[in-house]
Write a protein that binds this DNA or RNA. Structure first.
Lengths: 213, 213
DNA sequence: AAACGTCTAGTCAAGGTTGATTAGACGCGC
DNA sequence: GCGCGTCTAATCAACCTTGACTAGACGTTT
């Protein structure tokens, strides 16, 4: 009966994939260490509350959970000016997990939040890897559109008419996403953005020169 | 400080709007009374696990919560054949709340799950009401596209380049949705679907002839 | 200089979500 | 007539999300 029990688990201790987790890990990493409020501000300036629907409350939870899972380290800092704060830094496992989350988010269809978060963290990947993941997404979307087309030819008679008509909307979204993914793949191939293996990326910048707030 | 404390609360005891709640209330109502497994099967046959991302576990919780809030009544039934079951029936408050949820889900932008669930429960509204809500949605989407266009002219310099480029994808989704909403409005005007005030709708069918499993 | 709003920084309880698990009934091949 | 898989029906603990709330510091208005 428990044939599939393990299957869905990823690199770390398990638990649901979450856009919050990815974004929090990503910002901490990009900042080369950050406290909660800093992550919160950075995400806000990226407009993440709207496209990933992240509320401040979730950020602190995600940070603590990631620290408990060994993906981040916690350093308590006495408040020299203002309240106390806790500094978080990414561990090696945290970096690996984050990269896997980005790759998965790009490759797999479904879940808009995860896709948005993955795109936001795209430069965590090398250029060739990113292109490969996006291309796999393109292939998946094309396959899904074929399935959807078949489904509309032979609709499920149990579902009411207006529910069946909803499929048009989903197909429209899938086509939009397909076009966008194709154009992203092309932009990447043409050298757009600074990826992990490009000069000037977060990876090639020495620690003391990384972004600070 | 608590100026807005009440504002977000709806008709009932409060709490977050949820696609699960709407679908569960809707199925119970449409079935003229149902137990958990029946709701689960019906949603499955509508393909709801995929488009509303509802897992069985959530359904039972939603039923109990709705019963605790007075939106449903619970009738324990001894298992004449098979395990025990609990029969749920919609109350008047449950019906009112559900209709409000559908209207809100149609009118307000954001949250794909809620929109999908609302469309699935569209025939809960009268035809004129449904058209009005969809038209308001059309207007909102058009306004949003204008805002997005302005945003792309004057992008936020704090966000990285690839995050700013993501806006193209959102705009594409918004345009897809806009076109679909317009066509839905048109179909409704032309008399498509059986709405709450049409002959043959769930509302005009006497209780004993309602769908049973 | 007391009052006021605002920014920094974070906690918390209440509630929602979910994968795993339980358990009886039922058909069916051997 | 016994084991096996499948269907019905639901429970539960672990985990995630969130709105509301706390609290110090700082500028600035009155």
């Amino acid at each position: 009966m428990e044939r599939f029990a393990i299957e869905t688990r990823g690199l770390s201790g398990g638990g649901r994939v979450s856009a919050t987790k990815l974004l929090v890990l990503g910002i901490v990493h990009l900042s080369g260490g950050a406290h909660g409020y800093q992550v919160r501000s950075e995400l806000q300036s990226w407009g993440a509350e709207s496209w990933a629907k992240i509320k401040p409350g979730s950020i602190y939870h995600a940070l603590k959970k990631a620290a408990a899972d060994g993906l981040l380290t916690e350093h308590a800092e006495p408040g020299n000016s203002g309240p106390e704060r806790v500094l978080y830094r990414a561990t090696a496992r945290g970096r690996d997990e984050m990269v896997e989350l980005v790759r998965d988010g790009l490759r797999r269809t479904n879940d808009a939040d995860m896709l948005n978060a993955s795109i936001a963290m795209l430069p965590m990947l090398t250029r060739t890897d990113a292109i490969a993941q996006v291309n796999e997404r393109v292939a998946r979307l094309e396959a899904e559109l074929v399935v959807q087309a078949k489904w509309r030819e032979h609709p499920n008679r149990d579902a009411p008419e207006h529910v069946r008509d909803q499929a048009e909307l989903w197909a429209g979204h899938a086509r939009t996403e397909l076009e966008w993914a194709k154009s992203l793949s092309k932009r990447l191939s043409e050298g757009a953005y600074t990826m992990a293996d490009d000069p000037g990326s977060w990876r090639t910048v020495p620690d003391h020169r990384k972004m600070r707030v």
